[in-house]
Design a binder for these strands. Structure first.
Length: 209
DNA sequence: AACTCGGGGCA
DNA sequence: TGCCCAGAGTT
């Protein structure tokens, strides 16, 4: 790890201490469902929906008793609810029929599930199974490419750049640091560069000067 | 690569 | 009112 990368992670860690996944879950299955639900919405809204949902339907077998319209009704207010309800119940069926009711801990198995792409699979691997990954969502993509830790136009290449530039033991933490930073300061439209703790290290800030 | 899904929070 | 949000599937 070069000195710049180390400095960036240190400063972000100081700015956002004890970062972790903010989705509401108690089991790998609940994390999987919450992460599928989190596409194109906020974790806050997902938590509002899952709070009661995971009390009434805590396990994959409880979910298997839900009909699509019933689940749609319970997650309606987060948006994109038709696709999400359909995908979640398809995935529930697959988990029971092909994975003995367990959430698989291999990337290839996870992405074969309905509604699960690279980002969701990596979030589950990192947070439920403690497997080192960097889940590249819109925040991680924007932040890491602005800083200069990645130099890519697509998610997959950004993932590779970050894996090359950041030591494996820091992957999960780096993911959460970039998420927090992307929501708080390094926002999409008008990033607050003037009060950013890593602006001295940032390619985007220094180019804009 | 472009298009679609989408209700709710916020300015 | 209009813009935006921890993406994924389809064409």
């Amino acid at each position: 790890m070069n000195i710049k990368t180390k400095k960036i992670l240190e400063l972000l860690n100081k700015e956002y201490p004890n970062v972790k996944c903010e989705l509401n879950y108690n089991t790998p299955f609940q994390l999987l469902v919450a992460t599928i639900l989190s596409a194109q919405t906020t974790d806050k809204k997902v938590n509002e929906v899952t709070k009661q949902l995971f009390i009434d339907y805590p396990t994959v077998y409880n979910f298997s008793k839900l009909t699509i319209p019933e689940l749609e009704d319970k997650i309606r207010k987060i948006g994109l609810y038709r696709n999400k309800a359909k995908n979640i119940l398809k995935t529930v069926k697959m988990l029971i029929e092909e994975y003995n009711g367990q959430v698989p801990s291999k990337f290839d198995d996870l992405v074969s599930l309905h509604g699960v792409g690279r980002k969701t699979a990596n979030v589950v691997l990192a947070n439920a199974f403690n497997v080192p990954t960097i889940a590249v969502d819109t925040h991680v993509f924007r932040v890491s490419n602005r800083i200069g830790l990645a130099n890519a136009k697509d998610v997959l290449q950004t993932e590779k750049d970050l894996q090359k530039n950041i030591p494996k033991k820091d992957w999960i933490e780096a993911h959460h640091l970039f998420i927090f930073h992307g929501r708080n300061l390094c926002i999409a439209r008008k990033p607050k560069c003037e009060i950013c703790p890593i602006n001295r290290e940032c390619k985007y800030f220094n180019q804009a000067e």
